[in-house]
Design a binder for these strands. Sequence first.
RNA 1: GCGCCCUUCGUCUAUCGGUUAGGACGCUAGGUUUUCAACCUGGAAAGAGGGGUUCGACUCCCCUAGGGCGUGCCA
Length: 470
Amino acid sequence: MTSTTTGSAVITRFAPSPTGFLHIGGARTALFNWAFARHCGGQFLLRIEDTDRARSTPEAIAAIFDGLDWLGLTPDAAPVYQHANAERHTEIAHQLVATGHAYCCDCSPEAVDAMRQRARDAGTPPRYDGTCRDHDLPYQEGKTVIRFKTPLSGQTQIQDIVQGDVAVDNAQLDDLVLLRADGTPTYMLSVVVDDHDMNITHVIRGDDHLTNALRQTQIYQALSWDVPHFAHIPLIHGADGAKLSKRHGALGAEAYREMGFLPEAMRNYLARLGWSHGDDELFSTSQLVEWFDLKSIGKAPARFDLEKLSHVNAFHLRASDDDMLVADIVARAPEAAPSREKIKFAMPQLKERAQTLPELTQAAAFIFAKRPIVIDDAARKMMTEPRMANLQAFLPSLEAAGDWSESGLKALTEAFLSEKGLKLGELGPALRAVLTGTPNSPNLYDILVILGQQETVGRVQDGLNLNADN
RNA sequence: GCGCCCUUCGUCUAUCGGUUAGGACGCUAGGUUUUCAACCUGGAAAGAGGGGUUCGACUCCCCUAGGGCGUGCCA
């Protein structure tokens, strides 16, 4: 029977192995652990699973810290390094031998491979055949490993919050290695010991660990320890439905930061991948914490969709503080610094024209562009002959304008148009084009106000000259 | 090979046996507009297939197909 933790406070953990960057799947696992702990008023811990000394790197550890920090998923205690607990893990391995739940084995890796191959050929589960199971060999570092004595019959089951009840025949499970020949503990032993020692109440992780949970349950039982609650969440797939590939989102968290996505938007989007709260699509992090629960996580794997992420990001971008966004633009384009006030003035309109941070800087670029400004193809199409002729005729009015306010400019323009019997469409697009160099720009009169009289007249003249050259 | 898990519009999902199967992204038609966005209105778009159970199945059971994961002295 599986016993479960009965403690009151919820404690979750994110336990990545530091062998690469914090990829998007890991980030979501961390988010779920964090959100659940926050929702329950519990604790969220971080454990670096660095028992594989050869593959663990300081760079990867730094990338994990960095990614979590960016996403705002701050652990409630200093990170635990699994490697540091090796002695304790080793001690437990020997204890299991002493209590008859494990044994020493001196079969060579080659011999074990052969056993597995034979079993596979016979159509049975590939596993260690138990040669040393009852040999009662003494432990000899460098020569023997310690194997767990998996029950030979019956079955093991877990009650998974996401996956439901899952049972497997013990005959399917191998006598896994707990302690390697070099004396170091394996992952399977270390997780169990650390999760127990850290008082983890809920193990929330990718469902690639589902069968591991069965094996770990056997270890918990051999140790007479409470089994934590499990929640195995489905993995994220790439846009093509296959495994997450580099082009489909298996990028480090920092890659999304560089693409201009906001942490708030990442939390929103990632949470929605596999978890749902009715029809709610766009929500704040505090709403996420308020609503999050393990039972509303689906069992099917979800695909990563950059377009939807962009949409979610656009929503959070609009909700962002204007000063913060201005600062971001200046950080991306230092030459924008003198134009801070103008950019802030235009921000409400700029926000609606961007989904990501770099796009926002792009939308603001016309404000701090130096004459003569670059005019893109779409803008050039708006510079038709008739419109440019009208613009030429309008130039003196701009040069002579005394009231450079939005209302004054509007009146000025309308007076000109009515005098000539023109519609705004016969002048406006060309004016916009020469002033901003792009059709993707804010309200015309705001543009004039932001640019100021001198810059406006200058850009109009540049545009007219350019046109004359063609 | 063996085991476990999964399968609703292209994508993310709602639905706890009775709905015209809802929402969102994307796509699309139109509106608004000096442009581009934003916004508003409308549209196309789904229960993998086959058996059961039931008065009635997307929902429960079985089979098939497809997909994922595991099967390490990696984690």
